[in-house]
Design a protein around this nucleic acid. Structure first.
Lengths: 239, 239
DNA sequence: AAACCGATGTTGTATGATAACCATGCAAGC
DNA sequence: GCTTGCATGGTTATCATACAACATCGGTTT
């Protein structure tokens, strides 16, 4: 038996914790745009860490565009937040409603991507998709390998849209969804489901190969609906 | 005349320079996924800075998911980059094809958001949208204020979907699109266009108020089509 | 009133030290 | 032969202190 107990390596870096804490203060409105942060010394004292750690946290928040600082003046909350990067808080995702929202967003992107893929896919795209599907067929259902190739298949679909940002966004969201599912650990396992899932993928592939955008949309919608129920997500009205 | 030359304050922070430098090494393939970075001491020596600065740079890269480090082992280039944050390179956006891709992605989100908003909007949502539209009416066309309220209107629409991630993603993408348009500077100006644009917004608002998802979708599609031509973007087949 | 000047506080950077941790090799024991 | 235990060196994580660069403010001088 291969225990495999799930790397609990939650970034124990102090700077990460401090950054998250300050970030939360901003998100919850206790620190508003334009406000000046406490001095590094004060922050170090209140958090009980060295000024060095605070500086690493500040450096991180600065790179994320949340705050800006100037030598001799201080650090301030940026006017327009997250101007440079987009982040999703893992903790917040544990809330069912947040997860559902992200899943919905993913669905929108996947469905539209499938439609675009049906219209734009090239021969190479089709080959890549078939290849990914074949690999998935060979992997045991529910295994890490299986999840990985599942994601890979969806990536090839996104790639067929010939829109790099579509790939980037979709993979980002999907990765977050997948992490959250793995963390919650409530996924059913059975050999039957493997066949069902593969069938859904095949239907998507067929529609894209046929160039039928509407059918591709519908197939993807059905797949996501199935996936939602498989992870125990009560889906609301879909259309 | 108040030049306002674009804050060339390229982060004079040494940590920023070091982070960029390492980032470039990764992007150009001189450091490949899985590779171990030089030790902090070595990096500090080669860059001619203190180890503290190197650590701040590392903290930044780690938060961006580009590298990963473990106490006692070292720092390594991450296998799949940007696992934690999503970034869009401003330089790359200058390419017309990239801009078009991002605009397309924005369109998908906006259209689907409009449909969801029509189904879920509350009375408060409608008030916020009407308020934003009124403010836009009062601002001179093409002014900074006008652009800001335009974005605000779209934000209220996104908010009406009751999906926080929809708001986050849509605003992020829209902001990037807006930045790029401002940078290119090719937007036509005329009083007639103001009326046209406001009319498009009104149609969206009416559809959402009526709860007509299909009409809301169509209205948003028309609006984006208009916006595309207004910034001189040759749109391909829309549906 | 305007310009200069110094005191004070803050961030930016440098330096050295300590603790926690990992990898490796080697010897002892089975 | 194989494992266990330990010592050792290397690396990151953190701390503490010091100094330089810069901004702000008040007082002084012009």
């Amino acid at each position: 038996m291969t225990l495999k107990l799930d790397k609990v390596n939650r970034g124990p870096h102090l700077s990460t914790l401090v950054a998250s804490s300050i970030s939360r203060e901003i998100a919850q409105g206790r620190l508003r745009p334009g406000d000046q942060l406490p001095t590094e010394q004060q922050l170090a004292q209140t958090f009980g860490v060295s000024r060095n750690v605070v500086r690493e946290a500040i450096a991180r928040l600065r790179s994320e565009g949340r705050i800006w600082s100037q030598q001799g003046r201080g650090a301030f909350v940026a006017d327009e937040p997250n101007a440079t990067v987009l982040t999703i808080d893992f903790e917040a995702l544990q809330q069912a409603s947040a997860f559902q929202s992200l899943f919905e967003l993913r669905g929108i992107l996947e469905v539209q991507a499938a439609a675009l893929a049906a219209k734009r896919r090239t021969g190479d795209d089709l080959l890549a998709m078939k290849d990914a599907l074949a690999t998935m067929r060979a992997a045991p259902y529910g295994s890490v390998m299986w999840l990985k190739t599942d994601l890979e298949f969806h990536k090839t679909v996104a790639a067929a849209t010939d829109n790099a940002y579509m790939v980037q966004f979709l993979m980002f969201v999907s990765e977050k969804v997948r992490e959250s599912i793995l963390a919650s650990g409530n996924q059913q396992r059975s050999e039957d489901l493997a066949a069902v899932t593969l069938g859904e993928h095949q239907r998507i592939l067929d529609a894209i190969e046929a160039g039928d955008a509407d059918e591709a949309q519908e197939a993807m919608r059905a797949h996501l609906h199935g996936a939602a129920s498989r992870v125990g997500l009560a889906e609301e009205q879909s259309k």
